[in-house]
């Protein structure tokens, strides 16, 4: 038995027939071939599978695809716009916020939810927000710095940013 679902993923509408038992992360990875979302522990402990469902950071390994019917989903593939990295992606790049990179998509999606609700988070608030995402490589230090980098960039006035970009 299959159920028809309609989901908008990274701005594109998808209508698919899925098994009711199919987990959302496997729908994204196996059906839509969006393999940027990772499966780490399969028990919603590690956060590698985090995506945005209607703007809210959600662990997609413990949500069924049918539950996402009529939802708007953003995955790591939807973060960059027109070939330009999202400030969070740029932050992870600039601050050496990853080593093996397995946790990175989940970290970025969780941080995106944080920055949407808190433009200027303190170090403590960043660490609290990321406590559902495991990282075995970085000790979290540079991940926190990457999120601070993105927060600074996203809150910087547009004019100043353009001037700085022009100076480079």
């Amino acid at each position: 038995m299959s159920t028809k679902i309609t989901v908008t993923v990274n701005g594109a509408k998808h209508i698919d027939k899925v098994e009711p038992r199919l987990l959302l992360v496997y729908y994204l990875r196996d059906v839509l071939k969006l393999t940027g979302t990772h499966v780490g522990c399969d028990t919603s402990s590690c956060g590698a599978c985090t995506i945005l469902v209607d703007g809210k950071a959600t662990k997609s390994c413990t949500m069924l695809a049918v539950q996402a019917d009529k939802c708007k989903i953003t995955t790591i593939e939807g973060m960059a716009t027109n070939g330009e990295l999202h400030p969070l992606q740029e932050g992870f790049n600039q601050c050496h916020g990853l080593q093996c990179g397995f946790c990175t998509p989940g970290m970025i999606m969780t941080a995106a939810d944080l920055l949407k609700n808190n433009k200027k988070p303190s170090e403590e608030q960043i660490r609290a927000a990321l406590e559902g995402n495991f990282c075995r490589c970085t000790g979290y230090h540079n991940i926190v710095k990457a999120v601070q980098y993105a927060a600074d960039k996203m809150s910087a006035p547009r004019a100043r940013k353009t001037k700085k970009e022009a100076a480079l």
Binding site: S45, A128, L130
Partner: peptide, 15 residues
């Protein structure tokens, strides 16, 4: 599993 094994998290550390 991670349900039982304790991994250090971001809020366990300072800079």
């Amino acid at each position: 599993s991670y349900m039982d094994y304790c991994m250090p998290r971001a809020d366990d550390f300072p800079m």
